[in-house]
Each structure stands twice: as C-alpha cells, then as structure tokens.
Simulated scan of single mutants.
Amino acid sequence: MLEGTPSDPCPCGRPPALCVCPPAPVVDNEVTVLVLQHPQEQDRVLGTAGLLSRVLADARVTVGLSWRNLGHALRLGTQQRAPDARQWAVLYLGATHLDAGGRRPERGSLVALDRVGAPLADQAAALAGIKGLVALDGNWAQAKALWWRNPWLTRLQRVVVVPDAPSLYGSLRREARPEALSTLEAVALALATLEHDPTVRDRILAPFRELIRRARAAGIRDSKRDRRSRR
C-alpha cells in the first residue's frame, strides 16, 4: 500500500488526497542520498524531496542556502566521523559534452564528468567508489544558487543523468529546461546505475507516478501550499 488514508496527515505535508508516502521505505539503498533543498521549494505541492526521503531507507533532506561543508550539510554531530568527500558525488546541473570519440552519452545513463563537463574516460572506475550522492532541490535558478553558495560542492565528483524520457510532471510543473527531471526522478536513475539494479528506479518512481495520477485527476498543478496546512 503506497498511500495513507484520506484522514491521515501526510508526512510530506501534502493534502491527504495527494499523500502517497509509503508506510516504510521501499528501497534499502546502499548509496546515501543527501538532498539540499532551497527554502522556497519546501512548500511546493508536487515537490519530490520529502517523498524521496520516505521511499529511501538512507536519505535526508536539509533545507537552507549554504553550509560549511558536507558534514555540516549532513547535520553530523561533533562526535561523528566526517564523511570522505572523495566518496561523494553531486548531481551536476550542466549538460554533458560529447565524449573523446565524439559520441553522445547513452540515454537513461549516469555519466561522470571532469571539471569542464566532459565525460571521464574510465566511467566504471569513476562511478565505482561513490558512496554518497548530493542532489540540489529547487527550480533551475534555485538549484544554481545552491551550487554557487556552497563551494565545497565543487570538490565532489560531478555526475549527470541523461534522461531517456521527459519528466513525469508533464504540464503540471513548468521547468526552465525541457530535459529537466524532478529531484526524485534524477536520483532514481542515478541510484539504479550506482547500485547496478534497474528495479530501484521503478520502485522509487511508483509513488511519484501515483502522485501525478492523483494530481491530474484532481486538476492540481504544482504551486505553493499554505504553510498553515503543515501545522
């Protein structure tokens, strides 16, 4: 069962009729996921960060604009071991260039990039050591603001997802770029690649598909919800 009953409060803060939060995580992910959410994104009716954190066993959402470093963003205590940034990647905002052979990346793939946006020669080696994944949650301008306000992100491995289909949002949410995916969709594709399990993507997408179905049936487009409804 994916959703709560209409009378239950939604853990994501959505109206009960749109609540599709699973009662327990449906993916026991090995790669930790950290979502950095722009404050203006947290009240979006069809936002996906909260849902993603409910679907994955090891995921957290941190709301804000800037953090000192990865450990600060993860909200680690002073006695907790600092994460090794060399084992973390960030879902990069830019598009990937052609590879050294002039080929375009395969659709539906995850590509590791160098600092100028070119695919690394040894993709298997670049992706093999990734233990954590950072995603920036917000519209295009908000995500770019998070990127520039947190210079420590530039020290992480850059990876980019190459969509194989348009976002499930369709006309429910307007994006600056036609190839843009929701945070949940991008993470789903990335984790399926990093964990070598294509079923991961389908399991993550299942509740999101239901959310979109319900929103379309109710004629609801993405908008900001009233903060008072979250109390």
Rank of each mutant, 00 (worst) to 15 (best):
Y92W: 15
S167F: 15
A165N: 08
S109Q: 00
D84I: 05
T199R: 13
C21E: 00
P9T: 11
Q123W: 00
T199K: 13
V61K: 05
L191F: 02
P207N: 06
V134F: 11
P25E: 06
C21G: 00
V187N: 09
D202L: 14
A85D: 11
D122G: 02
R158P: 00
L76R: 10
C10L: 07
R155K: 13
Q87M: 11
V159L: 07
L70Y: 01
A82V: 08
S53Q: 02
D222S: 12
E41G: 10
R81T: 15
R68P: 13
T78Y: 11
R54M: 10
I220S: 02
R228L: 14
R201T: 01
F208M: 06
R231W: 11
L211C: 07
L91P: 09
L76V: 02
R203E: 07
A192I: 07
R203Y: 02
L36W: 06
P39T: 01
P6V: 12
P166C: 07
P151R: 05
K224N: 07
A73F: 14
A192W: 05
L127I: 08
D58K: 13
S53I: 03
W88K: 02
S182F: 11
R103M: 15
N69W: 01
L184N: 10
A188M: 00
L51Y: 03
P198F: 02
V187R: 03
I220R: 13
D122F: 05
L70D: 09
G47Y: 04
L56K: 03
R174I: 14
R86Y: 02
Y92A: 15
Q80A: 15
K131H: 12
L127R: 01
S229N: 06
G71A: 15
E185L: 04
G132Y: 00
V27R: 08
L172K: 08
P119Y: 01
R227I: 11
L91R: 00
R14I: 01
V55P: 12
L133C: 01
L36Q: 07
R227N: 11
M1G: 11
V45T: 14
R216A: 12
A24L: 14
S182M: 13
G94C: 01
P11V: 10
H196T: 10
D114I: 13
E3T: 11
L133M: 01
R213I: 14
L110K: 03
A89H: 08
G129H: 00
A190D: 04
L56M: 03
L56G: 01
R149Q: 15
A95N: 14
E195K: 01
L52F: 04
E185H: 00
D58R: 14
G170V: 00
D84Q: 03
L136V: 09
L184Y: 03
R201M: 04
R221F: 15
W67E: 10
R68Y: 11
V134E: 09
C21D: 07
P15Q: 03
R81M: 15
Q157G: 04
S171Q: 14
A59F: 12
A180K: 01
P25C: 03
P39D: 00
T199A: 11
E106L: 15
L153M: 12
P163Q: 05
G102E: 09
A100N: 15
V90S: 07
R214M: 08
G13R: 00
G50P: 11
D164P: 06
C12Y: 01
D114T: 02
W152Y: 03
L70M: 02
V61F: 12
T183K: 06
V27L: 08
R155L: 14
L120Q: 09
